[in-house]
Computed example of a mutant assay.
Amino acid sequence: MGYPNGLVAQAKQPLFTFGVITDVQYADIPDGRSFLGVPRYYRNSILVLQNAIQNWNNHQNISFSLNLGDIVDGFCPKDQSLNAVKKVVNEFNNFNGPVYHMIGNHCLYNLPRSALLPLLNIHGDDARAYYDFSPIREYRFVILDAYDVSAIGWPIDHPNTVKALNLLNTKNPNEDKNSPNGLSNLERRFLKFNGGVGNEQLKWLDDTLQDATNCNQKVIVCCHIPLDPGATSKESLLWNYDEVMDVIHRYDCVKVCLGGHDHKGGHSVDSRGVHHRVLEAALECPPGTDAFGYIDVFEDRLSLIGSDRMASTEMVFNR
């Protein structure tokens, strides 16, 4: 599928361009529905990814691609999990450039961190999945680990699991910790399929943003779980999004936060002028439709050119 001509042509060439896709959630199982009743096309999602790779390769100027998490679905039969992850990773490897992955809850339903991270080429110490990179001197990408504190992915006796379960038991009285029944407003985020950023990662984020400021870099923060209530449903927020945003708002270098997880997508600009763009899911594309895009990066804005079900978005920096 091609891209719409919805954005005004810009005279200046972008500094660089990168591809984006999220929530492929492939599984070799019949189509189903989400807990909200939205159709999910488990087998077709890998065709959406294949179309994305073909488009990015044909574009030629795309420097790298970003996968914002959830490459396989939680309903994938567990005896197929390893092969399913490898199958999707192999599709990403058909892209003519680097691919940067982040982990999502569905990834962790299938494989523990120790098995998952090497397959995604994430090599953090102590199974951490946060890192940063700079495609050019002027820009830095910060990839957060949204399941740092989580009830999934870590061994059951791991301190991060214990902390997560204690938090859920405190905040969510439901027997089913994936149910928001009875929870009000922003408290509805305290669900087992979400997670949080731990203290060590918060310190790393602070140090990284300070370094980016010292280097006069603009920063794009990427996190599978969204960081702003204006861009997503209350049930799809990072547990401690407020703490993360407190760190981000200490600096003027962060211009955009990209996320997945909430399949319908969204866009907001927060009180400090930071854009939050939650991307639409590949999983929910009926056969013959697509949801992926590429982002042109300029000095003063990002331009997302989306295909089909992914909305094109102009993100002009306010400062």
Rank of each mutant, 00 (worst) to 15 (best):
V278W: 05
K203V: 12
L238N: 04
V221W: 01
Q10H: 07
F133L: 09
L165W: 15
E284W: 11
I220M: 09
A281C: 13
P286A: 15
P286Y: 04
G198K: 09
G19H: 10
K86M: 09
Q13F: 12
Y294W: 11
A151G: 04
F292Y: 15
D228Q: 07
N214H: 14
I220D: 05
T161E: 05
S81P: 06
D211V: 11
Q13D: 14
F92D: 01
G104T: 13
P229N: 02
R188V: 04
S236Y: 11
I46H: 00
S303Y: 12
N67M: 09
V278C: 14
S114R: 13
G306R: 08
N199P: 04
L237H: 01
G74L: 10
L283A: 09
V72I: 15
G230C: 06
Y26M: 10
E138L: 14
D252T: 10
G6F: 12
C285T: 06
W239H: 05
K78S: 06
S65Y: 02
Q10F: 10
V38I: 15
E175Y: 14
D125C: 01
R301V: 06
T161Y: 10
I136D: 01
K78D: 13
V254H: 01
P159C: 09
D145F: 07
A281M: 07
Y41W: 05
P287V: 07
D23V: 08
D28A: 13
H267L: 10
D79W: 09
L15N: 09
G196V: 08
H158Q: 06
I103A: 14
L116A: 13
C107H: 07
P135A: 13
N199E: 12
S34D: 15
L7Q: 05
L202D: 00
L82Q: 05
L144Q: 03
S184M: 08
S268Y: 01
G230M: 10
L237A: 05
W239V: 05
G104P: 05
H261P: 07
P4K: 09
V219P: 00
I156W: 05
G266K: 07
T313N: 02
Y139I: 07
E175P: 00
A164S: 12
A84I: 08
D206H: 07
L186G: 00
C222F: 12
A146E: 01
K203H: 00
P30E: 12
A129P: 02
R189Y: 08
M245L: 12
G195V: 00
N58E: 11
N93D: 15
K192M: 12
I220T: 15
I156L: 09
G195W: 11
Q217D: 06
D28W: 03
I46G: 01
S81V: 06
G2I: 10
G97S: 07
N216S: 14
V316M: 05
D23T: 14
L279V: 08
K203G: 00
L304K: 10
G182K: 13
